[in-house]
């Protein structure tokens, strides 16, 4: 299957189905998060077209078949709420405004009925020699999209109502629960275990992405300016997942990270790895830099 077909079947369509299917029965926060996941998928399509990894004609058709109706829906969904209402219209929500400017510009074009595929390029341009590494990034990204624990983590720290979060966060979660949640898709872990497992899986994704990005740097196929543009675009596509402009998200993120740290510390003590605790916790502190670096610059 061609990489664009793979992307459509494995990532774009499932996200769109989640966004559009059963939306009436879901709360606004869930709809907002799913909309952002769809937009994130669109940003990958957009980057793939710029690099030449996705053929233009087929990508334009993918856009008009699948995305244009999503943007139409997004516009009407946002217009059903008045400015100043609670929660605010999606396009005025802090999670949407947490998207980088280029992404919001592209959404604006889509909502106005335009063709956003060629606007706001990263600046790297068409690069046949980047297609293979880009495909590696796509494989990692599609696995991330299929991970239900990551979705639960994102919802928990960025979108869940305070009362619900507090109740679920106070559930007991042992290291065994976490292990089960990470290791076994057929287990039925607690909500807290799923949130923590999502954090762990997101760290794994970030580590693998950084490894591919470092390899691209080592290939020396991009000059330093283009390399910066490329990495910056990748990081910005995902930055909404840990939106540091939201105090609520920062607080919950720290809660999750703090709990993981305690669990890991206990595990290391039990296994007689006391000397390793400091270095392991240092790794943990930096494990999500992929999502945070672009925000730290502007924060």
């Amino acid at each position: 299957m061609h990489r664009l077909q793979q992307f459509v079947v494995g990532t774009i369509l499932p996200e769109l189905e989640r966004a559009v299917g059963g939306r009436d029965s879901r709360d606004d926060n869930d709809v907002s998060m799913t909309a952002l996941l769809v937009i994130e998928g669109f940003l990958w399509l957009h980057l793939g077209v710029e690099l030449g990894a996705f053929p233009r004609e087929a990508s334009e058709d993918v856009y008009s078949y699948y995305y244009s109706s999503f943007f139409d829906w997004l516009k009407s969904y946002s217009e059903t709420r008045q400015t100043g209402s609670t929660p605010p219209p999606f396009l005025e929500s802090s999670s949407y405004l947490g998207l980088p400017t280029f992404a919001r510009n592209l959404v604006s074009i889509g909502i106005r009925g335009g063709q956003p595929l060629y606007d706001q390029p990263s600046g790297v341009g068409e690069r046949p020699d980047l297609v293979d590494p880009f495909q590696s990034l796509m494989i990692l990204y599609s696995r991330l999209c299929r991970n239900s624990a990551v979705r639960r983590f994102l919802y928990g720290i960025g979108f869940q109502d305070s009362d619900d979060w507090t109740i679920q966060w106070n559930e007991q979660c042992t290291a065994m629960d976490l292990f089960e949640a990470v290791d076994s898709s057929d287990a039925s872990p607690t909500a807290t275990a799923m949130v923590l497992a999502g954090y762990v899986s997101l760290c794994e994704f970030a580590r693998n992405m950084e490894e591919v990005l470092n390899n691209i740097e080592g290939l020396a196929i991009l000059d330093s300016a283009q390399l910066f543009q490329f990495k910056d675009r990748i990081r910005n596509i995902h930055a909404w997942r840990l939106n540091l402009s939201s105090g609520v998200t920062v607080k919950r993120f720290e809660q999750v990270q703090g709990k993981i740290k305690k669990m890991v510390e206990q595990v290391l003590r039990d296994e007689k790895f006391d000397d390793e605790i400091k270095s392991v916790q240092g790794l943990l502190d930096n494990s999500l830099d992929l999502f945070l670096e672009s925000q730290r610059v502007t924060a």
């Binding site: 292990f179 760290c203 595990v267 790895f273 943990l284 494990s287």
Partner: peptide, 14 residues
């Protein structure tokens, strides 16, 4: 496992 990430650290006891 210790040099990897949290997904591997939590495996240690099991």
């Amino acid at each position: 496992l210790l040099k990897s990430g949290p997904g591997d650290w939590i495996v240690l006891p099991y």
